[in-house]
Amino acid sequence: MTQTTVKPSLALGTLHTGRLPIPELIALVVGLGCFFAFPSNLGFMTEIVIMILLVLSLDLLLGYTGIASLGQAAMFGGGAYCAGLFALHIHNDPLLGLIMAALFGGLMAGVSGLLFLRAHGLSFIILTIAFGSLTFAVANQLNWLTGGDDGLYGYIMAPLFGAFEFDFFGRTGFLYSLGILLVVFYGLRRLVNSPFGLSAQGIREDRQRMTSLGFPVYRVMLMIYIIAGAIAGIAGALSAQTIQVVGLQSLSFTMSAEALVMLILGGTGRLYGAVIGTVVFMVVHHYAADLDPSTWMLVIGLMLIAVVLFLPKGMVQLVDMTRNKVSRLNGGAGHDNSK
């Protein structure tokens, strides 16, 4: 029955969506709506946009390829310092700095991935944590370059496209970050729905079987790791350019762990899960700002435990559950392709 009515590609059982930038347009509308609705919260909303980018990079690794990294902050902080230093010493054009940071993030991922991706399970996780700790220690050590504990500051970004000043209210910063997010999101959506993206998912499902199908698994994983590193680097650069200061905490384990919490909270393996999780986490964080750091840490810890025990697939699970209920109410049968 279905074969005759649906498009050939759907009849062939693809779960992948088309190439129209509809999700991006929705995000653009929502983003602009927030821009006009909360003009006094632009700084915070910029922070959310930046974190979404970082969490998306982690989703590409973990959600689509099954690479569990606890050191993604290394590339984020690396990109931030790269963009900050580039602006301070070489050129303060934001887009040029962004490109440098993307390259630097990709380079860090490439070098570390080359070493780490042969390891599995516990060893890989430890390596990523250790790499994060190493970058933190290096940035701390090179305080003549990075400013150490005081942070890196004192650079002023040139206007975006030579026309838009980074204003005090953060209007340019927000729109700039939102624009970059939309571009990256579109690219990622194309990527995960491409032959390469399907190969990544095959690796997530069963690495050894992918080898038995003749895939150079290590090489594909390394490419994904580099792409994710570049995206994290871009997120770091945006952070450095919009806040105009880079601190050591951008390289910290807590940063990596928080990004992971946001991803897990939203749900892995779907790009919008990363978006939902980050927004929810950041908003909760914002309103819990009065709490002292210890209490906030307790909240994150409890959130983690609760998600693992009660919501292992994240908040997208709630969406699915509702959707399944609705489709059952509508008498829709055979809804086995919830993904």
């Binding site: 516990l122 992971l260 210890s294 292992p312």
Partner: peptide, 17 residues
Amino acid sequence: PLDQVLLTIGIVFCMVA
């Protein structure tokens, strides 16, 4: 393994706090 990692990080954060 990832769930184990997350749960135990959660425990760490709680106990640190």
